[in-house]
């Protein structure tokens, strides 16, 4: 089997410092107001029975990406190793990919005026380095590597830990695996958001 990049995020180690979000912005010159990677935080329960949950989000570099299928000009493409990228010179900015991504991973870069999202820091990975968010993670919660390589940390974690992905029902087959994720963090509580649950 060929190389297939994936990310495992061990939420038991995540402290919610947002260093990954900052490193990503800095590494990729992401303008204000938009994010390639961010951390959602929520608190559940009532004192004294409470818990706090974090969910770092980024592009899931899905096996079957909705964004890629809907792009009318094939500006979004996928490498052999699974990385989903956008050809910034071809993108016409129709925003169909943004509407179709179930994870809100995409946005229009207000300076470049094209669709944009996490690239797994492609140029860093090509140069043998880790993505900026993984590199900066203070607790080592973010692990990036080849899912198909039995010697990789990602392979070991996927083999030995219980993992969950966000919205598995969409047939996108996302490649960000969370260890210890709380169900309430993986998807928005829509019923409560629309006012149907008190």
């Amino acid at each position: 089997m060929g190389k297939r990049y994936a990310m495992v995020i061990d939420l038991r180690k995540c402290v919610g410092c947002h260093a990954c979000q900052v490193a990503c912005k800095s590494e990729n010159n992401v303008p204000l107001g938009v994010n390639r990677s961010w951390v959602e935080e929520l608190e559940t329960g009532k004192f004294p029975n409470v818990s706090r949950h974090r969910l770092p989000r980024l592009c899931n570099h899905c096996e079957n990406p909705s964004c890629l299928n809907v792009c009318p000009v094939k500006a979004t493409y996928q490498l052999e190793d699974g990385t989903v990228l956008v050809d910034y010179d071809r993108c016409i900015g129709c925003k169909y990919c943004i509407a179709a991504c179930p994870y809100d991973a995409r946005f229009i870069n207000p300076e470049r005026n094209t669709a944009e999202k996490c690239t797994y820091c492609h140029e860093r990975v090509e140069a043998g380095m880790q993505p900026a968010c993984v590199n900066t993670c203070i607790t080592g919660a973010r692990v990036f590597g080849d899912r198909n390589d039995p010697n990789s940390e990602v392979f070991k974690l996927l083999a030995t830990q219980s993992v969950a992905v966000s919205k598995p029902e969409t047939n996108n087959r996302p490649q960000t695996y969370y260890i210890g994720a709380d169900e309430k963090a993986l998807r928005p509580n829509l019923l409560e958001i629309v006012g149907g649950e008190k």
Partner: peptide, 26 residues
């Protein structure tokens, strides 16, 4: 309406140059 909605309206011709059968927009 579509043309004015594009973030890169000058590149609309890409729609003719690149066919994408999986995209309803194409």
């Amino acid at each position: 309406h579509l043309l004015f909605d594009l973030a890169q309206p000058g590149r609309f011709y890409n729609l003719f140059l690149h066919v994408s059968l999986t995209s309803a927009m194409s």
